[in-house]
Deep mutational scan, measured.
Amino acid sequence: GKRLNIQLKKGTEGLGFSITSRDVTIGGSAPIYVKNILPRGAAIQDGRLKAGDRLIEVNGVDLVGKSQEEVVSLLRSTKMEGTVSLLVFRQED
């Protein structure tokens, strides 16, 4: 696979993607993946982020050990017109 650095500018329609966690172990944390890209928002305008990408970092914060809720609040904490920096891991087909 490969790592991608993606910067998304948060506009009025938001970042435009949803996340999910897979393989949750009890008391553990699961990897966070991009669930889908919404028809409006920064992600589809940028065009690089894809469903199935694994989020590794948000704005330089390592997501290991973070819950899905914590990751959502990290993403939401970005101000309007601010930039969210994502490091994602993509499995090659």
Rank of each mutant, 00 (worst) to 15 (best):
I19E: 00
N59F: 02
G11N: 14
V84I: 09
S67G: 10
T12G: 08
G1H: 04
V64Q: 11
F89C: 09
S21F: 09
G41V: 01
G1M: 15
I56A: 05
K66R: 08
Q91H: 15
G14L: 02
L86P: 01
L4H: 07
V58F: 12
T83I: 12
A30S: 10
G60D: 11
D53N: 01
Q7W: 09
G14C: 02
I44E: 14
S73A: 14
K9W: 13
V71L: 05
R3T: 10
G11L: 10
A30C: 15
L74K: 03
D53Q: 00
S29I: 10
S85R: 14
E81Y: 08
G47N: 04
S29T: 11
R48H: 06
A51N: 04
L38I: 05
Q68Y: 14
E92T: 14
S73L: 09
K66S: 06
D93M: 10
L49R: 01
S18F: 04
T20S: 09
V71T: 08
G41M: 00
A42S: 08
L55C: 03
S73K: 12
R22H: 13
K79I: 07
S73H: 13
L74P: 00
E13R: 07
D62K: 14
Q45N: 10
G60I: 01
R3M: 14
R90N: 02
K50D: 04
L15D: 00
S67A: 07
V72Y: 08
L8W: 02
G27S: 15
K79Q: 12
R40V: 05
T20A: 11
T78K: 07
N5Y: 13
N5I: 09
K79R: 12
V64G: 10
R76C: 08
V64T: 13
A30H: 12
N36L: 05
V24D: 11
P31C: 09
G1K: 13
S77Y: 10
P39S: 11
Q7G: 08
R40Q: 11
R3C: 13
V64N: 10
D93Q: 15
K35L: 10
K50N: 06
G11D: 06
V61P: 00
L4K: 04
S77P: 06
S85K: 09
G60V: 00
S67F: 04
P31L: 13
Q45Y: 06
Q7I: 15
P39T: 11
E13W: 07
D46I: 02
T83L: 12
L49M: 05
E92G: 10
R76M: 09
R76H: 09
P31Y: 11
D53T: 01
R54P: 00
L55Q: 00
G16R: 06
L87W: 13
N36I: 04
R22S: 13
S73T: 11
S73P: 04
Y33G: 00
G16S: 05
L49N: 01
M80G: 13
A42H: 04
E57M: 11
L38A: 12
D62Q: 09
S18D: 15
G65F: 07
V61E: 07
A43V: 00
R54I: 07
R3L: 09
K2Q: 08
I32V: 10
N36P: 00
F17A: 00
I6F: 02
S21E: 12
A30L: 10
I26F: 10
K35T: 11
L86Q: 03
L86R: 00
L75R: 00
T83V: 08
N36C: 11
T20E: 06
G14F: 02
L86W: 00
S67V: 06
F89A: 13
N5R: 12
S21I: 09
G14M: 02
I6N: 03
K9Q: 15
K66H: 10
K50A: 11
D53A: 00
L38H: 15
S21R: 12
S29K: 14
V61D: 06
E57C: 07
I37M: 01
T83N: 08
L38T: 09
L49T: 01
D46Q: 03
L74C: 15
K35A: 09
T78H: 08
Q91F: 07
I44M: 12
F89M: 13
L8F: 11
G65D: 08
L87V: 11
Y33W: 10
L74W: 06
E92D: 15
K50H: 11
K2M: 12
P39K: 11
L87G: 13
R76G: 09
R76P: 03
E70V: 07
L55N: 00
I44F: 09
S29P: 11
P39L: 05
D53H: 02
G14I: 01
L87F: 06
A43D: 02
L75T: 02
L75V: 06
R22G: 07
L75W: 04
L8K: 01
G11V: 08
S29H: 15
S29G: 15
I37W: 00
T78E: 11
E69S: 09
N5C: 14
P31W: 10
F17M: 03
L55T: 00
A30R: 07
T12H: 11
R90G: 01
L49F: 01
T78C: 10
K66C: 05
G65W: 05
Q7D: 15
I56S: 04
R90E: 01
T25G: 04
V72F: 07
G82A: 14
G27D: 15
R90H: 04
F17T: 00
D46P: 01
I56W: 07
A51S: 09
